[in-house]
Amino acid sequence: MLQKKICLLGAFSVGKTSLIQRFVSSLFDDKYLTTVGVKIDKKIVTVDQQEIMLMIWDLAGEDDYNTLNKNHLRGAAGYILVIDGTRPKSLDVGLAVHDKVKEALGDVPVVVALNKADLIDEWILDADQLAKLEEKLPVLRTSAKTGDNVELLFSELAARLQ
């Protein structure tokens, strides 16, 4: 079976771990436990009747104290950039991360998750910026809490992995 390494990247507390947990174990937890270093999960997805084993690397989110460890990116076939709709700062961070990854990995497939879609009323994202992002990259509105678009998010990326 084909195996691919993918990473979930983005600012801290945007819901990377939550999205993986939802996708892999169909669970959600309101408690916030920040990820230290890296955690690896796996799940098999089917793309065009072909099974692919995704090795999902959950990296610690970026914040003022913690910058992305490029070592963890090595060999990744694609990644999911997670942005928290309730925190405009996470968009800036996400875009910065995106640039960094491009530098490290080159042009690998990426899908953007605008997370916490269940809290869409609280979203305070700049519409212009959002439009620009959607022009550039495939964007999905997801919710780890409800599971909305979570499966789609991963299979979208899987489909893009060559």
């Binding site: 195996q3 691919k4 390494k5 270093g37 890296v38 690896i40 999960d41 796996k42 084993m53 090795m55 690397w57 963890h72 090595r74 060999g75 990744a76 076939a77």
Partner: peptide
Amino acid sequence: RESSLLIHHQYSELADTRDPDMVSGMFSA
């Protein structure tokens, strides 16, 4: 080495093997 993906795994009957794919990733992590 690059992707930390498990290419092959061999184990004896006695071994307690728990998800070698993830273990393999964790080694490099």
